Amino acid sequence: MRLTEFTELTGLEFGRLRADAMLVDLVLVELGGRTGAQAIDDGVDPRDVWRALCREFDVPRERW
């Protein structure tokens, strides 16, 4: 997944301001105790970060 697609999906699902805050503030155990932004900076595929966020917030699977 490209970063632009990830940014678009997070904005649509969570709202742009909330998504931006989540990426820098929310630590996800699934991502090794990193925030989404840290994981992406460390080279984790944005698709994996997207799926971790979806699981954390119980986003219906059809919107993943």
Rank of each mutant, 00 (worst) to 15 (best):
L23V: 02
G15L: 11
L23G: 01
Q38A: 12
R16T: 06
R2Y: 01
Q38T: 09
V24I: 08
D58A: 08
E8S: 09
R47P: 00
R55D: 04
G43T: 07
V49Y: 00
P46G: 09
R61A: 14
L12R: 15
L31I: 01
P60W: 04
G36F: 11
G15N: 06
G33T: 00
L3Y: 10
T4V: 10
L9T: 04
L9R: 15
W50N: 04
T10Q: 13
G32M: 02
R55V: 08
L31C: 12
G36D: 02
R63P: 00
V24L: 06
R51P: 01
L12G: 15
F57T: 01
V49W: 01
G33N: 12
L3C: 05
I40F: 09
V49M: 02
G15D: 06
V27S: 03
P46R: 06
G15M: 04
R51I: 11
L28R: 10
L31S: 00
V27R: 14
V49E: 00
R2F: 12
V24K: 05
G33F: 05
E56K: 15
I40A: 05
A21E: 13
L31R: 13
D20N: 09
G36H: 07
F6M: 01
R47F: 13
W64D: 04
A39C: 08
L9Y: 14
E62Q: 10
M1D: 12
E5N: 03
D41F: 05
L3I: 08
R16F: 12
E62A: 14
M22F: 13
L23N: 04
W64K: 09
E8L: 13
E13W: 13
F6D: 03
G36T: 02
A37W: 08
R51Q: 11
L26F: 07
A19C: 06
L28V: 00
G43C: 09
L53W: 07
L53E: 02
R47W: 09
F6E: 08
F14D: 07
L26W: 07
D25I: 02
M1R: 12
G33C: 10
R61K: 09
A37D: 13
W64T: 14
D42R: 08
E30R: 06
R34K: 02
G43Y: 11
D20I: 04
L26S: 05
A39E: 00
E5R: 06
F14K: 04
A37M: 08
T10Y: 09
D20G: 01
G11T: 07
W50F: 15
G32V: 05
L9S: 02
V44H: 01
R34I: 02
R2H: 08
R18Y: 11
I40L: 07
V27D: 05
L53Y: 08
D20K: 07
M22L: 15
R18W: 10
R16V: 11
R18G: 07
